[in-house]
């Protein structure tokens, strides 16, 4: 809260340099959260799979469930070739999932609420998708942009539209994740500010303040849902794009 009586919902997304020298090089809380997300992912999988028990414990069961869930998603969406792309999709899914979920905790930061991060992830996906398409089909990949069953006369108009539609995935994929995460955190901040403002307004404000607190409690649950769902949506869309690149249509 910058000033009392004003809702400052966006300053939570400001980056602050951290860790002295490293901070001067651009190490912010967002970067720190990325490191934490990567470390948690490695820990979950590394420690979880250490017992290699036939009957898994809780951590191993969680790791196995995540693995099998993503594996099935890859194979069902992309097809037989999906196994080749499983490591990529799994990494992406876990990184985004942990990034989203870490943001739910107080004092933590959801790095996926910055479009710079989601755009970078999306660009990685799109570049890899295009490389896969070109590597699989060579120049034949260009036929992806030629819709079937239309008169030749219309092609000069339709091919640019198809290319634009392909390129627009970059924006839609990144904006979807970023907007969902940012909107959720802005809402939390706004209702949190309501609690403080109404709670400080005297006896009459106590009831609405409690109401706002209740809404915030529900919103936290909703945020967890959105965090998991958006990570899943990002992963499955990556799978669908890879499927398109491998199979062309």
């Amino acid at each position: 809260m910058a000033a009392p009586g004003k809702i400052d919902a966006l300053s939570q997304f400001q980056l602050h340099p951290m860790l002295g020298e490293l901070g001067q090089m651009g190490f912010s809380q967002s970067t720190l959260m990325m490191v934490v997300a990567a470390a948690l992912t490695l820990m979950l999988l590394g420690l979880g799979m250490r017992p290699r028990a036939m009957v898994p414990g809780r951590l191993q069961a969680a790791a196995e469930m995540l693995y099998e869930f993503t594996y099935n998603m890859c194979v069902e969406t992309i097809g037989h070739e999906g196994r080749r792309f499983f490591p990529f999709v799994f990494t992406l899914f876990l990184f985004i999932l942990f990034g989203n979920l870490l943001g739910v905790f107080p004092y933590f930061f959801a790095f996926t609420s910055h479009i710079a991060v989601t755009l970078a992830l999306t660009l990685v996906v799109m570049v890899i998708t295009t490389i896969v398409g070109v590597a699989t089909h060579k120049l034949h990949f260009l036929s992806y942009f030629v819709p079937q069953g239309v008169p030749k006369l219309l092609l000069p108009l339709l091919v640019p539209i198809e290319i634009l539609s392909y390129l627009s995935r970059i924006i839609s994929l990144s904006v979807r994740l970023f907007a969902n995460m940012m909107a959720g955190h802005v809402m939390l901040e706004v209702f949190g500010a309501f609690v403080i403002m109404l709670g400080g307004a005297g006896l009459l404000g106590l009831l609405p303040a409690g109401l706002a607190l209740g809404i915030n409690t529900i919103l936290i649950g909703f945020e967890i849902l959105v965090a998991v769902l958006q990570a899943y949506v990002f992963a499955i869309l990556t799978c669908i794009y890879l499927h398109d690149a491998v199979h062309l249509h």
Partner: peptide, 15 residues
């Protein structure tokens, strides 16, 4: 609605 609007706008932004 959100999905549709994102799809519509993103193509326009790229263009």
């Amino acid at each position: 609605g959100f999905k549709v609007s994102v799809e519509l706008v993103s193509a326009l932004v790229v263009a």
